[in-house]
């Protein structure tokens, strides 16, 4: 049960369903399963299928242009992020090395200090953006109005909480 809902949250996140909606869908599954005693896969079908079915609500509402779809498809974001991180790291490390020893040339012909600072700023901005992204759309349990907390393995921290009927 816990695994099913955790996997469901992951899939819904990947499909960019808003956090409050994910909270609703999660609570519905928990409530229904507690009521019927059914196996979640029997009742709701495979996790991926159910997530896609529920995501359909949002996907239909936010059909965008070609670029928007590319970005929603993640891979372009992934490539852009990779290039950005690579350039920022190259600037920071290259700048640092050029400062440390004259044997190294500063990257992109920049002043070593400038390269170092630009690299650090770019990386810090990336980190701040990521953190804000994670905090921007929390999953909220509609029953308590509280944010659902997750550990680093993607498991819910309240998995043994008071609302946890029939959780192994």
């Amino acid at each position: 049960m816990t695994t099913y809902t955790d996997d469901l949250v992951f899939e819904l996140r990947m499909l960019e369903v808003p956090g409050t909606r994910i909270g609703e869908i999660l609570a519905e599954v928990q409530s229904h399963i507690a009521e019927t005693g059914e196996d979640p896969v029997d009742a709701f079908g495979p996790v991926k299928d159910y997530a896609r079915e529920r995501a359909g609500l949002e996907v239909a509402a936010q059909q965008g242009g070609f670029l928007a779809r590319l970005f929603r498809g993640h891979w372009l974001m992934f490539l852009a992020g990779l290039a950005y991180t690579f350039i920022a790291a190259r600037l920071m490390i290259g700048g640092g090395m050029a400062l440390a020893s004259e044997r190294f040339e500063s990257p992109f012909g920049l002043n070593p200090w400038a390269a170092l600072i630009i690299g650090v700023v770019l990386l810090a901005a990336w980190g701040v953006w990521l953190l804000r992204l994670m905090k921007a759309d929390p999953i909220v349990d509609p029953r308590t109005g509280r944010q659902v907390e997750w550990d680093l393995r993607g498991r819910r921290k309240d998995a043994n909480g008071p609302d946890g009927a029939a959780r192994p």
């Binding site: 709701f44 529920r54 609500l57």
Partner: peptide, 15 residues
């Protein structure tokens, strides 16, 4: 009717 069929319908009605 399974939960997997019912709740998406309820979700659409709510939307």
């Amino acid at each position: 009717v399974k939960g997997g069929t019912l709740y998406p319908i309820l979700g659409r009605l709510e939307e």
